[in-house]
């Protein structure tokens, strides 16, 4: 049994105010896969991600990580295994300085000081933010915040990386940097995104959510070539797969 399998079975989630955010989801993600979860606003993407590390508990159904169900006993280990980067980096960077923020997770794991320092250094180097270590988060730009937010998770050496809209709010250069960064991460990756071009570049598999249900689950290219499905789910073909509106040449690299 691999450590990095994510299994979701008949997951249903109803919020306290009665909103049914997820209806009946089932899928399995295997070790090393890179999967995109796409869907219109309010489709339930963020809600789904919050189940993957046990922040939200299913109303009905089950989530298993590496074969283990989410129970109070398995929770600490699962939270170390599943590294989660949130949509708004301001929610994630709560400590006084970047260094302390990246060290927050390793400290909670009870690692010795020396190893914490080493992990923080490595994580910050990986995202190219080594020079920001002593800065307070509110003096960072949006792209810097995002990269540091990723470092806070990398420092815990997760086996599964879960990210909610990683490229949201980044300028083209920062976005490109981030995509490069994520390509180098070779464990299981799960993203939600409205940036469909990034999805094509990073994910071989895509799950389409629509009003709390799985509308499609398959190879990314096949899904983006299914015009009817995209229209039904209020999505569009990514620009890189559309013909060039100026010269008419198709640039379908896949």
């Amino acid at each position: 049994m691999s450590h990095h399998i994510v299994e979701v079975k008949n997951l249903k989630h109803v919020y306290a105010d009665g909103t049914i955010a997820l209806k009946d989801l089932s899928f399995t993600i295997h070790h090393g896969e890179s999967v995109a979860i796409i869907g219109a606003n309010g489709a339930g993407k963020s809600t789904l991600l919050l189940h993957l590390n046990g922040y939200l508990a299913p109303t009905v159904g089950e989530v298993r990580i590496g074969g283990f169900p989410l129970t109070p006993e398995t929770l600490p280990e699962i939270r170390r295994t599943v590294g989660m980067v949130f949509q708004d980096p301001d929610d994630q960077l709560f400590m006084p300085t970047v260094y302390e923020d990246v060290a927050f997770g390793p400290c909670n794991l009870g690692l010795p000081e020396e190893e914490v320092r080493q992990r923080v250094g490595e994580a910050l180097e990986k995202v190219g933010a080594g020079h920001l270590a002593q800065k307070p988060p509110y003096h960072l730009s949006g792209g810097e915040k995002k990269r540091v937010a990723i470092a806070t998770v990398l420092s815990m050496s997760p086996d599964i990386l879960v990210m909610d809209e990683p490229t949201n709010g980044l300028d083209p250069f920062s976005r490109r940097q981030l995509i490069g960064l994520l390509k180098d991460f070779h464990h299981t990756r799960i993203f939600t995104s409205h940036d469909l071009d990034m999805v094509i570049e990073l994910c071989e598999r895509t799950i389409v959510l629509h009003q709390g249900e799985v509308k499609a689950d398959g190879p990314t290219v096949a899904i983006f070539n299914n015009a009817q499905l995209l229209a039904e789910c209020r999505l569009e073909k990514p620009l890189s797969m559309q013909g060039c509106p100026i010269c008419g040449a198709s640039r379908n690299r896949l």
Partner: peptide, 12 residues
Amino acid sequence: RIHMAMVVRGFS
């Protein structure tokens, strides 16, 4: 959400 981000990183 902040609490969530803390818990996810092992805060207890």
